[in-house]
Write a protein that binds this DNA or RNA. Structure first.
Length: 117
DNA sequence: AGTATGACCGTTC
DNA sequence: TGAACGGCCATAC
């Protein structure tokens, strides 16, 4: 049984298209908690395999990977690059270019179910 | 020195 | 054992 917040967060994460990224804070805000960014990290950490999430499409608000080297950093970077995302010199992603804006314009949530439009 | 952010954390159910 | 809840806090800027 997943909370409403968790469900929405998972749906938003699952709905991130290839080649696009979203930040922790934005996911949390869209899921209903403006200050719940840390819970998003928790979700990704504990439920990414189980729920088949594109966890690599979530980065921090600066466009950087929050994972530490040899703890998933290289994997995430490789996955993102394989989707066509380019990193700048400081391993930063250009948010203006790749950030997925306004998830709710692309998905519709009815009774807890998500539909891609 | 105040703000924003976060692959948290302790506890409860 | 796994998930929900809630908030404090270190770090960066």
């Amino acid at each position: 049984m997943l909370s409403s917040f968790t469900q929405k967060a998972l749906q938003i994460i699952r709905s991130i298209p290839e080649g696009k990224i979203l930040t922790y804070g934005r996911i949390a805000a869209f899921a209903g908690k403006s200050n719940g960014a840390r819970q998003i990290s928790r979700l990704l950490h504990s439920m990414s395999q189980k729920h088949d999430l594109p966890w690599h499409r979530v980065v921090n608000a600066h466009g950087k990977i929050s994972l530490k080297p040899s703890y998933g950093y290289e994997l995430q970077k490789a996955l993102l690059e394989s989707e066509g995302i380019k990193f700048s010199l400081n391993d930063t992603i250009d948010l203006k270019k790749y950030l997925w804006k306004d998830p709710f314009k692309k998905i519709k949530i009815i009774s807890g179910l998500t539909f891609r439009l």
